[in-house]
Nucleic acid binder design. Structure first.
Lengths: 113, 113
DNA sequence: TTGACGTATGCTGATATCGGAATATAATAG
DNA sequence: CTATTATATTCCGATATCAGCATACGTCAA
């Protein structure tokens, strides 16, 4: 087996920087593929492929508008990611955590001398 | 070019389900590799490899303890992911969004008849 | 129908991935 | 030193990925 298919879940879909850029851009509204590609400096086929992945995990919608196909955001799928990472919030908020880091580092340094 | 290296950033590191399981487990405290592997039903080399990736992106620390190596969480790297997804919060919270979905679906269905 | 425009798909090549098995390294005990 | 335990690394095979290019498909206008 290789890595899980990128189309299978949202975590994989947003692992790609260009796809994250697309999602950010779509917060501004609907975009036809060509304009989106120009804006983000990707090729049109490249944009189409990324949009396909995003569509398959449900992060974008598309609707036909003449020759164009307008893509828009459906960010509800990002909620689970937000919540999952939120489950770690207390670990980065608590101040003794940073102190603990410091202590750990000292211990480690001493051991490795 | 292929996909960005999984070691290069946190988004890629957490795209792997087993690595997410490891992070969740480590919220309970420090774990030696073998026990962690047993708990999550992975092989020891498998666990070591995932832990290496997590270490390289800074999501876990390790310290030596006799023959064992204890891994612990450093979840601060998850904060950017939490914040990035949080930038989409208003899009999934606003109720007109769901209404808009409904309208979009109707339009689409009508066009595709 | 033909042409032009917008978009999607197919193919190829280079590379990264993940799992498994074997083996190497590290640290302790006897 | 040797054996044992704990962990890391390496090699392998199968597969998924991403970019680039060519091309197919879809839609509209003349």
């Amino acid at each position: 087996m290789a890595r899980a298919a990128t189309t299978s879940d949202v975590f994989n879909a947003i692992a790609e920087p260009q796809r994250r850029e697309i999602l950010v851009l779509l917060r501004a509204g609907e975009w036809p593929v060509t304009e989106l590609a120009q804006e983000l400096r990707m090729t049109q086929p490249g944009a189409s492929k990324h949009l396909r992945v995003l569509r398959e995990v449900g992060l974008v919608r598309d609707r036909k508008a003449g020759k164009q196909r307008l893509y828009s955001l459906d960010s509800r799928g990002l909620r689970p990611v937000h919540e999952w990472t939120g489950g770690f919030e207390r670990f980065w908020n608590e101040s003794f955590d940073r102190l603990d880091d410091y202590v750990q580092d000292l211990k480690q340094a001493r051991q490795e001398e």
